[in-house]
């Protein structure tokens, strides 16, 4: 790792201030992606601002039909405390491994927007609202392609608001080595329609499969997506699976998610 200063503010305002001064700074969430990146010397910040000590960024609460997760909440906490949104809790409980889940945070994962990460699928399928230190961003506007988001430099995700659906499920088909999603599909049924978000598959990062959404909004059964497919063009092709294979898995995982959501 290159040398850097590590700041550990305990108040959000201090973190925001540290991230906005002239020193080249990066926010440090759980560090489960950033620290390995630093070890490879692929990033060279002058300063890291750890968000781990900021109590106001942590916690899960349910109010009305909305579940709100603090941006600094570790996956393990979401898995244990997001019972009001079981599909989200289950997703969080299957990210990485137990030790990673004790450190990695929802804000860090969403801000990183790894094309194979799980949380972006949940946020997009839920039509979540990402609250930052300065504004609110709809999930539909947030994800802007692989490792790219609507966040400005130094902007911190403070909370994510998930409208709780009538039924939902996330199906992850794991890449055998990393155990990230080779293809992950999150299906969420709301009174005004069904949303389907796909991670792991596309070169553009997480996306909504609108064709499936239309079909499922009309008929929320696995059979409704039978015969539908996403084009292989634009899918990721690598040593773990071809473009065609990923496109095929999108259909399979969607059907399975619908079947599981219906319980």
């Amino acid at each position: 790792m290159y040398s850097f200063e590590l700041e550990r503010p305990t108040r959000l305002a201090d973190a925001v201030k540290l991230l906005s001064d002239s020193t080249e700074s990066l926010p440090l969430g759980g560090g489960q992606t950033l620290i390995p990146t630093l070890k490879q010397r692929l990033a060279s910040p002058e300063r890291l601002v750890s968000l781990a000590g900021i109590a106001e960024l942590k916690g899960v609460k349910t109010e009305g039909g909305t579940l709100t997760v603090g941006g600094g909440t570790p996956h393990a906490t979401v898995a244990a405390e997001a019972g009001a949104y079981p599909a989200l809790a289950a997703l969080a409980g299957n990210i990485g491994d137990p030790a990673v889940r004790n450190r990695g945070t929802i804000g860090g994962s969403l801000a990183n927007n790894d094309p194979s990460a799980c949380y972006p699928a949940a946020a997009l399928a839920s039509g979540a609202t990402l609250v930052t230190d300065r504004r609110e961003i709809a999930a539909d506007d947030f994800f802007q392609g692989m490792f790219s988001t609507a966040l400005d430099e130094g902007e911190i995700i403070t909370a994510v608001r998930f409208p709780i659906p009538e039924a939902a499920n996330y199906q992850k088909f794991e890449q055998p080595a990393s155990r990230f999603a080779l293809v992950g599909v999150f299906v969420a049924k709301y009174p005004d329609g069904v949303r389907v978000a796909v991670t792991g598959a596309s070169e553009e990062g997480v996306f909504r499969w609108s064709e499936a959404e239309t079909a499922l909004s009309a008929d929320f059964r696995a059979e409704a997506v039978q015969g539908l497919s996403v084009p292989a063009e634009g899918m990721i092709g690598d040593l773990h699976g071809s473009k065609a294979y990923r496109a095929h898995l999108v259909g399979v995982m969607t059907k399975r998610a619908v079947a599981a959501a219906k319980g």
Binding site: P176, A177, S178, D238, L239, H240
Partner: peptide, 24 residues
């Protein structure tokens, strides 16, 4: 039989260069 594969691309770059891509 099921998981492990050390893969080079045509330029001799190792594709499975960490546990992220080499399936143990």
């Amino acid at each position: 039989a099921l998981l492990e594969h050390c893969v080079y691309d045509d330029n001799g770059q190792l594709q499975s260069a960490s546990y992220m891509d080499y399936a143990m």
